[in-house]
């Protein structure tokens, strides 16, 4: 990944910064410059929106044939999480066993190492999810 691309996405990856249409209130993640519902009315009318970081598991699977970058973590759990704001994110589930996971389980984003450019290169950090009690 080129340095500028990673750097541009730091806000999204570290803090869950998406965008909100000031016209209709819809929240988007990753952030959008234009609301697909309001179109022209949303132009220059979108604001930054920080996701709370909590949501629930919609669906999940265990990956046994990982991408080369995730070989160290194999097998790992990948889930689609619906955040409390309504947006859906794909992310790893950590600090939990596969047989403990269920749809509807409450989860929270926590910062983890997502990968690296190379052993000499940049380290990419971002969100993964883990279970919470509430």
């Amino acid at each position: 990944m080129p340095i500028p691309r990673f750097w541009r996405e730091i806000e999204q990856r570290y803090k869950g910064i998406g965008s909100r249409c000031k016209n209709c209130g819809e929240i988007y993640f990753p952030p959008r410059k234009v609301c697909p519902e309001c179109r022209r009315e949303s132009f220059q009318n979108m604001e930054e929106y920080e996701l709370e970081g909590t949501g629930e598991v919609v669906t999940y699977t265990e990956i046994h044939e990982p991408h080369q970058e995730f070989e160290m973590l194999s097998p790992y759990i990948l889930a689609i999480v619906e955040m409390d704001e309504g947006v859906r994110l794909t992310g790893h589930l950590v600090n939990v066993d596969y047989d403990e996971v269920e749809s509807g389980m409450r989860v929270e984003a926590s910062m983890r190492k997502l990968g690296e450019e190379s052993p000499k290169g940049l380290i990419y950090y971002g969100y993964k999810f883990w279970p919470i009690d509430d």
Binding site: H92, V94, S110, M111, R112, K113, I123
Partner: peptide, 11 residues
Amino acid sequence: SPDEDVVTIST
């Protein structure tokens, strides 16, 4: 875990 380091623990 391989995805944990001083940055993630500190954060």
